[in-house]
Design a protein around this nucleic acid. Sequence first.
RNA 1: GUGGCUGUGGCGAAGUUGGUUAACGCACCGGAUUGUGGCUCCGGCACUCGUGGGUUCAAGUCCCAUCAGUCACCCCA
Length: 443
Amino acid sequence: MSNYQKPRGTDDVYGSEITKWHYIEALIREICYLYRYHEIRTPIFEHTEVYKRQEDSSDMVNKEMYTFDDNGGRSLTLKPEGTAGIIRAFVENKLYNTTDLPLKLYYIAPNFRYERPQKGRMRIHYQFGVEAIGEKNPTVDVEVIFLGYSLLTALGLQDLKVLVNTLGDDESRSAYRSALKTHFKQHLASMCPDCQKRYEQNPLRILDCKVDKEHPAMLSAPEISDYLSEQAKTYFASVLNDLKLLGIDYQIEPKLVRGLDYYSDTVFEVVSCNKDMGSQATIFGGGRYDKLVEYYGGPKMSGIGFGMGIERLLVALEAEGIDVAQPHECDLYIMPLDASYQSEALALATIARSNGFTTDMDYQKRSMKAQFKAADRANAKVIAILGEDEIKSSQVTLKNTLTKDQVTVSYFDLLATLESWLVEEEDIDEPHDHENCDCTHHH
RNA sequence: GUGGCUGUGGCGAAGUUGGUUAACGCACCGGAUUGUGGCUCCGGCACUCGUGGGUUCAAGUCCCAUCAGUCACCCCA
């Protein structure tokens, strides 16, 4: 056994598992293309200050970051979330000068968080995320939510719940915050230590507490809806209206406040309610942020985005019994019956490959029986046998594994036979048209 | 950071109160079938029993530590 093992909470992805990733990533890019969101790649590490915002009370920022000193005395941190780096890039590159706002961006990138692993939670996990920056408009909020949601439905997921809430604008939130403070003040002693800390740092997050969720003070706590400004109310109403318009069966969750401190107005989470999902049920979540662009030194601009955990998406697919693994096809499998015929086999394989046939061969000098079994495992459509008789006459025996037809032809006729067997009316030069077919549904 | 369960060949999995060369199944390789596979039969391969200490004449089996997996809390995607 190896003396080396991967670090805790990381994973090696290979075999049929990696084909699921390829499939999902391709679908993501396709959907983002349709919505005209553009990919952005930002560094996998940033200066620590980019992530460690002042007055941010979230655990992610304060105790889960992989922070290290580069060799020049600078403190860098491995990306723990997607939004911060993108806003930094948005400001640094002055992308706010773009004429057509909002600027719509997406990314697929690894995130690093020091946490105890469990189902749906890894120390390195991948997020697909989206940010629409520079236009505060309910239409944009709903477009963002729908984009993520449509990926899930395109994959065939059904056990979904869309949770939404509003945290209001600054005015609403500070009114609500002080209302919460006065409400919880008298009950503080009987509440959990975390809540006592939250009371000081960010009273909104008390609502998120699972320990005290049955606490009488929690049940009687004031709700944000009573403190919303007129503006925030109409904004949220408009979001809900557009969600309904697009046929999204949302659920208003008054206690949904999200873990990051920078959110305002619309916040949302899409969760899987499948019983096999485990306790980490949120597939994607996000919200609007009004102050972040300014915080990083840009103009006063609002943005909205979400992060979606790919691993969690895979868990959700598994839970609903949806298999998106893609087979690796094999048009031709070549069997050299003697080690001395392997060069001919390689030459034939090269010809087949350069003409677009996926081709494999046996390299192991095994028995004919073993080579047939290998061809079966590869799911070969055609098997080419290269034995003594064939080599002598510069021929190859081809067996169609589906029809069991078998012919012996010259090397020159290899391609013609493959074409007649494998290429039917379908034109192989045309790229597959995904937009007009239902090939995204594989189960 | 806290807690429960787990760790035996590529995979699955036996292993009783510690006792000679650690079952079995799958997979793989060879043969029966000297050039036609997916069935059957026979044979074969398989590296420290997670790692490191300890107790003992003797440890996969007991003790300690450590690493990892898994699930839950916390938090989040």
